[in-house]
Structures are given as C-alpha cells and as structure tokens.
Amino acid sequence: MEKLEVKKLNHSFGFTEILRDINFKLTKGEVLSIVGPSGGGKTTLLHLCADLLDVEEGSVTNTFASSAFAFQDARLLPWKNVIDNISLGLLANGCKKAEAIKKSQEIAIKFGLEESDFEKFPKDLSGGMRQRVSFARALVVKPSLLFLDEPFSALDIGLKKELQAILIEMISKKEISILFITHDLMEAIRLSDEILLLKADPGHIVKKFSYSLAQNERDDKYVYGESAKILQDEEIIDTFELELK
C-alpha cells in the first residue's frame, strides 16, 4: 500500500522553531489538506514531505511510486516553449523524446491550451496560462502523489474551478493522492477527504476535520454549508484570528 507517513516531525531554521510534533498519514487515493494562516510553516512542511528540504528530527516515509509538485507560482523555464516545459518531467523519467512531446501535446489540449500556444515562450503567456502549463507539467507524469502548494491562489475563479474539476475527476477515479497546502478553507473543503489545521508559532496541528462525501458529489451548496460550519469552529477562529479584537 502506497502511503506518506509523517511521524514526530520537528523542524527549525537556525534558532527559530518552525514545526513541532507533526504527525499524519496519507494513503493512496486520499486527499489531505493542510490549512493555516500564512507564515505558519505550511510550505516548509510540504517541502519536507516532498524531499526538497532535509528532515532533521522525526521521520517522513514516502512509499508512493511517483510524485510531482505544482508550485504557487508557475516556475516554468523561460527559455523553453510550452511543450518543452510540459515534457520536462517525462524526459527526466527517461521517456523517449517523441513520445514525451506527444503526451505533452495531448495534456496541453486537455488543459485548455491551443495548438498555436505550443511554440510560445512563457513570457508570451498570461499568468493563468502559465499556471495551466505548470499543472500540465506536474500531471503529465501521472504521479501517484501530487504536492500542491497553493497553486490556485493567484488564479481567477473560472480557471480555479476548471483546474479543480480536472483534479476532482482524477480523485474520483482514485488515480491520484494529493497533499494540498492552502489558506483557503473553501478550496480545502471542495477537494479534501481530511483537513488538518496548522496553527503557527511554531507550526503544530490543532484539529482534524474529515469529509466523507465523494468529491464529485460536492456541489456549491455543500461546500458553502461546510465552510459556514467550519468558520464557527473555535479552533479555526482562534488560528486564523477571525475574532475582531
């Protein structure tokens, strides 16, 4: 069984403690969100899980066959065109060039890019298009685990829904597991099986929320309803400092 298991994870940068005693487990086909205010150590936690940072204390065990990362900003290579950017991960996995290009073109179309965009450099794309390319690059490798670092935060509502719909489709087919970092509770409720609330200074998990309804059956009413409910939660109010002082 593929899983990502974090046990007793602590992390500090110099003398500043960033994370304290983090424990959770993500199994195959599951979507786990970590929500919390900005600067609460969410990104650090994600980087530790994705092996972009070295674990100092505690353990991160990742037995997923493959993983990919979609960043908050698109992080495309400015000197490569759309297709070459998308095929980067495929080529790194040893895929043949012609096949990589074919797969990249297919997924680019699926993500709403047009054939006339294929040869464009990132500088000629709008912010939303760049994020599509970045998503396509992460998903074209068919990762069994996807790390998402607030990838929707800079997008307009339409594009956000579109990209989320693609993810929801993959989730409902149990094709993918996701570790999702966000500060947007509604986004988290729409996509997750489980939400962990990370409180800052130092980052530690204070509460867990579970949602059992299948993602493709969650309509706007459900998401709004659950959001309203979660916003009444005292821990949430306290963590996000929602109370007027």
Binding site: D51, R75, W79, G89, A92
Partner: peptide
C-alpha cells in the same frame, strides 16, 4: 533558486539540470 527547486522536485538527472536549467541562464 525557485527553478533549482523545481528541477529537484522533478528529479531531473544532473545532465538535464545542467543543460536545461543552468546552462541557458549562464549562457545569457
């Protein structure tokens, strides 16, 4: 640094890291 991190996250082998990520920038 962001692009380097991206290269690590996609597990690019060293020759791809150099040719696709570092070299074009250094060359410019």
């Amino acid at each position: 640094g962001d692009l380097k991190e991206m290269a690590v996250s996609f597990k690019l082998p060293w020759h791809m890291k150099f040719l696709d990520v570092y070299f074009p920038h250094i060359f410019s």
